[in-house]
Amino acid sequence: MRILPLSLTKVLVEREGDRLVGPLEMTVGAGGISVVMGPNGSGKSTLLKVCHGLVTPTSGTVAWAGDQAANARRHQAIVFQKPAVLRRSVRENVAYPLKLRGVPRAERLEKADQLIARARLNALADRDATVLSGGEQQKLAIVRAWITEPEVLFLDEPTASLDPGATRDIEALIGSIDAAGTKIVMTSHDLGQIKRLATDVLFLLDGLIKERGTVEQIFDSPQSETLAAFLRGDIVG
């Protein structure tokens, strides 16, 4: 392990006096797909950004372990809910993180082509990325994050507002990344998707982790009425 496990201790995030996340404790170990589940506004995206280091907690610590903990950012990647695509071709977009790391052009483009093929974006490789559909842009963003071979990949609502076909493609891509050994931490409020993908689930409400367990534990025997209500589709929070 280069940077895992990740430990959040007494993490609290406040903005302008409002509590967004925490205080909470959380540990992320290697392997599998951990899904942070919860209604809109529960703090899922903020929690992911705290883990990735884009949001500094008001108090508490975010600690990576492993022999590369000091360079943790280098071994993780994040895909935002509305990912930005650069005003370049799909190939140049996917290769971009390697360009920042000084990888020679031929090498990075070759690797980009391999991932573009895995995402089944071959036909679009030379196209301006800004004209792609939402689903295609999301796939591009995921393989762009994957190109650096991160140990942990954070995905914020990767299929939000996508049609079933695009959702299926992205879930298959996430499955490939998981199979390749990358730890995935993602947010979702799509219960069907969580059942299909997750190995463990965290239920987040009002910035607090209310429950955590395997998919079976969460869906078959929720410990709180709030989680049971959320799973029934009731409005909670």
Binding site: L54, I78, F80, L100
Partner: peptide, 15 residues
């Protein structure tokens, strides 16, 4: 539009 992406990729000010 690019801020979060470039920050997450640890791009230097020159990059």
């Amino acid at each position: 539009h690019y801020r979060e992406l470039l920050q997450s990729l640890d791009a230097t000010p020159a990059q």
